[in-house]
Computed example of a mutant assay.
Amino acid sequence: MATNEWLTGTHSGHIEIDGHNLYLSVTGPDRIPGTPVVILESGIGGSSSSWPLVIRHLSPFVRVYIHDRAGLGKSEVNHNAANRKPEVYAEKAAEDLDKLLQKAGVEGPYILVPMSWGGIVAREFLERKKDDVVGMVLIECVTEKTNEINPIDAPNTMALLKGLDFFDVVGVYKRQRLTPAEWQAQMLEMAENGPQTAVERFAWPLTEQTLGKKKQFERQILGSKPVSVIKGNAAREYQQVYQAGVAAGNGTEEQRAIVSKMLGGMVEKEDMLQREQLKLSSVSRFIQLEGPGHLVILEEPEAIAAEVKWVLETSKK
């Protein structure tokens, strides 16, 4: 595809980056030079199949780009990354995104819209391209301090989930608003993304440490460019998992005690971690959503669209 074709119309396809093909998709109004475009960034193991609701709400008023990281969704595995140190995974994902956009001819200004661990990748991209980023909307993002302050004991939590369906337990099935075909596509990609998901999950705590060394909060890296932080109710979901697991007779007494202790103060810790991201800029606002859990992108896309509009309007001032 010719470079300028990524700037008009709706397109999707693959672009070769350092020996492997990455998937890129775009929709929304044709690009007007100098106007911001939105760059979406998925969480661990996530891919473009998770974002159709958000894209439908954004594309009427802003051009939206979504890509799949190497080994996820429709993107090829980067076999050259086999010996990569896990602490640089987010840095390298940000480098891939930078190269992908440049090869597609998509210059800034950018509005970065990440979710969960995608916040680490997006902020590594910000580190590379801060002059081209005009704002951010951070959706339930992890930060450089998440595993230090609010670590999740995955093995014992999963023991409580034995034989249970997480999406059913926490009510996502009822609240999510994808079409049946979109939900099926996401479930299929989640299964296929398993190997790369495991790689990213292992690297996650170390990538937090790598980002932390850059002191973005202390530097207020975005200056006065607008930042919106959207928080759902992830802590509520962990409480629901605990209650359902105990009711099902899952887990040993020791495992239940460990998860119960983990839940102590989780609401306050999550609130503190999310609000600290406001320090990225002197112009920021915090949005607490009461309905959704962690997966805001499946449950309340209009809230994300509203914050992107706020960033767009504020960045013009």
Rank of each mutant, 00 (worst) to 15 (best):
E76T: 01
G293F: 01
P114C: 04
G264C: 07
G265F: 07
I139D: 00
V54C: 15
P33H: 13
E87W: 09
T3L: 14
A2F: 12
Q216V: 10
S47Y: 09
V113I: 14
L126V: 10
T207S: 12
V64R: 07
K215L: 06
R31F: 06
G194N: 11
Q209L: 15
T197D: 08
Q277G: 04
S75L: 13
M272P: 02
Q240K: 13
V113Q: 00
E253H: 05
R275V: 06
P109M: 11
G249P: 10
D168Q: 12
V308F: 02
S59V: 03
Q255A: 13
F202P: 01
R219L: 03
K130P: 02
L58N: 00
G293P: 04
V37Q: 13
V137E: 02
F125W: 01
T210G: 01
A306N: 15
I287C: 03
S47E: 10
V172W: 05
A305F: 01
L263G: 02
E148K: 13
L280N: 06
L72H: 03
A191E: 15
E192S: 08
T157C: 09
K309W: 07
S281P: 06
L40C: 04
A234D: 04
G105W: 02
M115C: 11
V229C: 11
L295G: 01
G212I: 04
A234P: 00
I66T: 05
K261S: 12
V308C: 03
E189M: 12
L161Q: 11
P180D: 04
L280Q: 13
V142I: 14
I149F: 13
K279W: 05
K317R: 13
Q102N: 13
T210F: 12
A257E: 14
Q186I: 01
S228V: 12
A93F: 06
D153L: 05
R175Q: 14
I139K: 00
V134G: 04
A81T: 07
E182T: 15
